[in-house]
Amino acid sequence: MARVIVDVMLKPEILDPQGQAIAGALPRLGFSGVSAVRQGKRFELELDGPADEAALSDVRKMAETLLANTVIEDFSIKVEE
């Protein structure tokens, strides 16, 4: 059993109005010192077996096919210890 995390973020050049709105809300709540916010998605995949090379290759395919739209988003994969 293993848990694999896929993080999906809008590419840097893609405008993120939701992140901007959050960045705008922080000072109003009294939080200072944050110059920018980008919002993304985190997927937690519970695998039936170990996170070996074959399983991670499949996760990569899942990310490319469904979890992320690679036209506008980047993804990263990590195995949770």
Binding site: I14, D16, P17
Partner: peptide
């Protein structure tokens, strides 16, 4: 159509939210 890659590009959240 964009998600299916029948057309290029993507539609994202409106700039004004």
């Amino acid at each position: 159509l964009c998600e299916a890659h029948l057309l290029p590009g993507a539609l994202t959240r409106n700039a004004g939210l």
